[in-house]
Design a protein around this nucleic acid. Structure first.
Length: 565
RNA sequence: CGGGGUGUAGCGCAGUUGGUUUAGCGCGCAGCGUUUGGGACGCUGAGGUCGGAGGUUCAAAUCCUCUCACCCCGACCA
């Protein structure tokens, strides 16, 4: 490709609305152009990179025994009513209405469509195991699109679905996909780790996310360097150490004028935060919930939501708290009636806690569970944090940020039951199909790659996903043989199967080199009178600082060896 | 949803106590010339319904009302 014919333009200025490094580079190098919030055009360079990524996906899916198909973007809204996701994913769904005012849902993912297909085509145990996948544009009306391709409303997704007769079959499919995903990251040249995850709105049981490690990531990952335990902070567990031992003492009322927060209270009484119990208030599907947790811990709302089995969870407003007759700042679960109480298991990890007195400026000493109060649910609803002890090996947990590029789930029979997707076994008995689903976003992977692979000059493409492999850069062309040599090299490289971007513009060396670094192709070849004097060209890898002169005769073979393996 | 911010040329910005009657600057773009190993220089030129609608006024990019779009932060507080 000749740059003079390329449709896009690099810019020196940092785009005003791009916040992360990767997003800025994507715009500056001319990979993408924004149409609306979270909606982008892929310009030729960006599109080539995306297609390379998708080709790797296809290859790995096919190797893993997947069969590619292509489902429609639009599907009847009734299917979404059937699964219940017209409600649970309600705000995120894009809809269109046809000429008869029939409501169609634009696919945010395709469990409903594929399970409908499975119900039609899978009849016998002989039809399984089966793995279907597609690569398709998905639509999600995200509350807050972010960081360019990282969180978009229209994006590319590879979604695969496995169909098996039983849990053992699903295990095989799941492990198979997990390995395929590891292969994909490796081939794309990215550092990523699988972490335990919450399964969220998709439903199902076991699930893992694949995180691309970068500061620009939206997710916090908790992991243990000692035993390799790693989990999304939404899901992570840690040891809640016993903070106090001893005999439960009688409850005692104490005056705590003006003390409303745990911070104030602990300072005032000169006790650690962990010697207190704090109360938090939520509305779970319109029901008021009183949450209790040790003062030094924070509530993990994802865990809380899962425990409460609710669709919607939010913090209660001050008015709602008041309406329950609760004294904010001095609330405690003691003596509460008619309110659902959920306690983190940390309240069982000590004795003689300080808790609210349910009267202004009053707290209670020596509160003990279960002697003084009872909870409807006692479970782990705490947020694990860096510094906590690992639940598996008691090493110290640390945290990193990452971008969730892929997510795999064991769905089980959640969808097959709702959609009547059943099969007949050897004995003629009918069972729901056991499903798994495996999502992986090529466009998000591209965004993540840009976040991870760059320096202060620009992008540093991993070879496998670079839009072109070589940046061919002729300098001082007039009155020399540079053009002649560069044109021949351009042709020879392409004949050798190497993808070349030829900078045929009449720009100065500085402009060309800076653009070469910004666009970040893996290799740069400079042809100039200076190099031709030595009958050679200059070769530089984007990852290296230094360039070297290679004899003209050898350059094609050298590149071929490096690139076309 | 809540909070904050920004909309002026393709991009980045200035101009906003209303008034030098044709709205500026840099980059980019077009033409000519001189240049050329890390974002060269000179001259000339094209490009704007100042996000949109309504209003106030002799006069609005500038003031008022409404509206739209985009960006950021928060979805941890008893």
């Amino acid at each position: 490709m000749r740059i003079s014919k390329l449709f896009s333009k690099t810019t020196r200025e940092i785009p005003a609305d791009a916040d992360t490094t990767g997003h800025q580079l994507a715009v500056r190098a001319g990979l993408i152009n924004q149409a609306a919030a979270g909606i982008y055009t892929y310009l030729p360079l960006g599109w080539r990179a995306l297609q390379k990524i998708e080709a790797i996906f296809r290859d790995e899916m096919d190797k893993a025994g997947g069969l590619e198909l292509h489902m429609p973007v639009l599907s009847p809204n009734e299917w979404w009513a059937k699964s219940g996701r017209d409600v649970t994913m309600g705000d995120v769904l894009f809809h269109v209405f046809d000429r008869r005012e029939r409501k169609l849902t634009m696919g945010p993912t395709h469990e409903e469509v594929i399970t409908t297909l499975a119900a039609r085509y899978i009849q016998s145990y002989r039809d399984m195991p089966l793995m279907l996948y597609q690569i398709q544009t998905k639509f999600r009306d995200e509350p807050r699109p972010r960081a360019g391709l990282i969180r978009a409303r229209e994006f590319s997704m590879k979604d695969a679905y496995s169909f098996d007769v039983d849990a053992a079959g699903l295990d095989v499919a799941y492990k198979n996909m997990r390995q395929a995903y590891i292969n994909i990251f490796k081939r794309c040249g990215l550092e990523a780790i699988p972490v335990e995850a919450d399964s969220g709105a998709i439903g199902g049981k076991d699930s893992e996310e694949f995180m691309v490690i970068t500061e620009a990531g939206e997710d916090e990952i908790i992991f243990c360097p000692a035993c390799n335990y790693s989990a999304n902070a939404e899901k992570a567990v840690s040891v809640k150490e016993k903070v106090a031992d001893g005999k439960p003492l009688p409850v005692e009322e104490i005056s705590t004028p003006g003390m409303k927060t745990i911070e104030e209270l602990a300072d005032f009484l000169k006790i650690p935060h962990s010697a207190t119990i704090k109360a938090v208030f939520y509305i779970a599907d319109k029901q008021f919930v009183f949450g209790v947790i040790r003062g030094d811990l924070a509530v993990n709302e994802v865990k809380l939501k899962n425990q409460l089995k609710c669709a919607d969870l939010r913090m209660a407003t001050e008015e709602e708290v008041k309406a329950q007759g609760i004294v904010a700042g001095s609330a405690s679960p003691l003596g509460l009636k008619g309110i659902k109480i959920i306690a983190d298991d940390s309240v069982t990890s000590g004795v003689n806690f300080v808790a609210g007195g349910n009267k202004p400026d009053t707290h209670l000493k020596n509160v003990n569970y279960p002697r003084d109060f009872k909870a409807d649910i006692v479970a782990d609803i705490a947020l694990a944090q860096a510094g906590d002890k690992c639940a598996k090996c008691s090493g110290a947990l640390t945290s990193k940020r990452g971008i969730e590029a892929a997510h795999i789930f064991k769905l089980g029979t959640v969808y097959s039951e709702k959609f009547g997707a059943t099969f007949i076994d050897e004995k003629g008995a009918s069972h729901p199909i056991v499903m798994g689903c495996y999502g992986f976003g090529p466009s998000r992977l591209l965004g993540a790659a840009l976040e991870q692979c760059n320096d202060d000059k620009g992008i540093i493409w991993p070879l496998a996903i670079a839009p072109y492999q070589v940046y061919l850069c002729p300098l001082y062309r007039e009155g020399s043989k540079v053009d002649e040599v560069a044109d021949k090299l351009y042709a020879d490289l392409q004949t050798a199967g190497i993808e070349v971007l030829l900078d045929d513009r009449s720009e100065s060396a500085g402009v060309k080199f800076n653009d070469a670094d910004l666009i970040g192709l893996p290799f740069r070849i400079t042809v100039s009178p200076r190099t031709l004097e030595k009958d050679g060209v200059e070769f530089k890898a984007r990852t290296e600082k230094e360039a070297s002169v290679i004899p003209l005769k050898e350059i094609v073979a050298k590149l071929k060896l490096t690139i076309v393996v």
